[in-house]
């Protein structure tokens, strides 16, 4: 339950950043997606996004993506100041179209994965990852 004032300040700033920025952040998340898809509307399904529902540590959140038959997967953290997290490209010799990484999340937000398929189509998956103070479960 207890936070130091420094933590409180950091959290407060994070929350402020998230609540002040959504328009710009979402816009730039959308821009990043549009740049990746060229404006093609992605289908739901075909890409799997694995992330915890509640982050154990918002500074290093394990995220993995998989999309059989994809040539590339882009990972977007919609609530981060820089929403574009990574783009994974898979060559024709790639054994599996999957990748795992750890990302930092500024606060509770939606994480999106979009896969570019070999046939030119796109697939989308998303998950809300909650970043919490915690400490009161019981």
């Amino acid at each position: 339950m207890r936070l130091t004032r420094r933590d409180a300040l950091a959290l407060g700033l994070g929350a402020t950043a998230a609540s002040f920025l959504p328009l710009r952040a979402v816009a730039s998340a959308e821009e990043a997606i549009a740049a990746f898809t060229g404006g093609v509307e992605p289908a739901e399904g075909g890409v799997t996004l694995n992330a915890p529902e509640i982050a154990e540590n918002g500074n290093t959140v394990p995220v993995s993506v998989e999309a059989p038959g994809a040539t590339a997967i882009i990972l977007i953290a919609t609530g981060n100041p820089q929403p574009g997290v990574a783009t994974f490209n898979f060559g024709p010799l790639a054994g599996a179209q999957s990748a795992a990484t750890r990302i930092r999340l500024a606060g509770t937000q939606e994480v999106i994965a979009i896969a570019k398929m070999a046939d030119g189509g796109f697939a989308r998956a998303s998950r809300v990852v909650k970043v919490t103070i915690g400490g009161c479960g019981g």
Partner: peptide
């Protein structure tokens, strides 16, 4: 929100 998030996967059970 740990108690009253409508999605149980986001609840912590305290």
């Amino acid at each position: 929100d740990n108690l009253f998030n409508p999605d149980p996967y986001y609840q912590q059970g305290g």
